[in-house]
């Protein structure tokens, strides 16, 4: 699977919440896309991920 443009080791049964815990990302104030599904971090479902999934985890930063 891909996370933020990088290959990420996939383990069968991995869920989105487990991935966030593994990456030490607090879901508040981030947004997550799994394929074409977009979620505020705090509302992301604990869905099971698939090996072909493309995951994006983003946040707001300073910009003009």
């Amino acid at each position: 699977m891909q996370v933020n443009g990088q290959p990420h080791p996939f383990t069968p049964g991995l869920t989105l919440h487990a991935l966030l815990r593994e990456l030490a990302i607090a879901p508040e104030r981030v947004a997550i896309a799994v394929g074409d599904d977009f979620y505020p971090g705090g509302q992301a479902p604990d869905c099971e991920l698939a090996e072909e999934d493309v995951v994006e985890i983003v946040r707001a930063i300073g910009g003009g």
């Binding site: 933020n4 443009g5 981030v30 994006e56 983003v58 946040r59 300073g62 910009g63």
Partner: peptide, 16 residues
């Protein structure tokens, strides 16, 4: 504000 990928190796900083 801009939107950027969270740094996977150093998460948790900032907080605009």
């Amino acid at each position: 504000v801009a939107i950027r990928r969270v740094e996977l190796k150093a998460p948790g900083h900032d907080g605009l």
